[in-house]
Amino acid sequence: MTTYVVLLTGDETAWERLTAEQQASVFAKHEEFARLLASRGHQLTGGQELVPSHTTKKITKAADGAVMVTDGPYTESVEQLGAFYLVESDDLDDLLDICGVLAEPDGAIEVRAAVDHGTGTDSGA
């Protein structure tokens, strides 16, 4: 099986403007996503919603070797990484189809295979 990271990006301010009922509707989509994964043979192995990007800490190293920590966000952008899932799957096409449940007009979903450091390839190769 290949391990995929499903990255959910969007406009944090749009989420903050949603009513409690609208946020509950989004959470229901995540429950449906998990249900579909399980019923279609994919394994959800992890995931988490992330705190807002303004809480980010950026770590860099100067030319003299000094480590610096600065407050975020790391980059200025319209979209921020808001959550991620780890999914093990043998069927990328079906996984992509299921990810459509989470698609929103103000965000994007990125699906990437994780590298298996034992082989130096994606985790399914």
Rank of each mutant, 00 (worst) to 15 (best):
H54F: 03
T70N: 04
K57S: 10
L102V: 06
A14F: 08
S123T: 14
R35F: 08
A66G: 10
A125C: 08
E21Q: 13
L95E: 02
Y74E: 00
T121P: 00
A83V: 03
T70D: 04
H42T: 14
S39T: 15
A125E: 12
G118E: 06
H42Q: 12
L36D: 06
A83S: 07
E76P: 01
A114P: 00
K61W: 06
K58R: 15
E49V: 13
A34T: 11
V111S: 07
T55A: 08
G100D: 14
T55I: 12
T45G: 02
T9D: 01
V78A: 09
D11V: 15
A113C: 05
Q80H: 13
V101S: 02
R40Q: 15
Y4T: 05
G107C: 05
D122E: 12
V67T: 15
H42K: 10
L96A: 07
T60F: 08
D11M: 14
L44H: 07
W15N: 08
L37Y: 05
E32N: 11
G65M: 12
T13M: 10
T19L: 10
T60P: 00
V51Q: 07
K58M: 08
W15Q: 07
V51K: 10
Y74S: 00
Q43H: 14
L7W: 04
Q22H: 03
V67K: 08
L96Y: 04
V101E: 10
S123L: 11
S123Q: 06
A63V: 11
V115Q: 08
L81C: 03
S89F: 10
L36V: 11
D93R: 09
L86I: 13
E88Q: 14
K29T: 10
L37N: 01
Y4A: 07
E110H: 06
A34G: 08
H30P: 06
G46L: 07
A103R: 05
K61C: 14
S25L: 09
G107K: 04
G118L: 09
S39I: 14
H30A: 09
L36E: 11
L81G: 01
E79F: 13
Q48N: 09
G118Q: 06
K58V: 15
E12A: 13
E21R: 11
Y85R: 03
T56G: 07
T45N: 01
E49W: 12
E32H: 15
E49G: 11
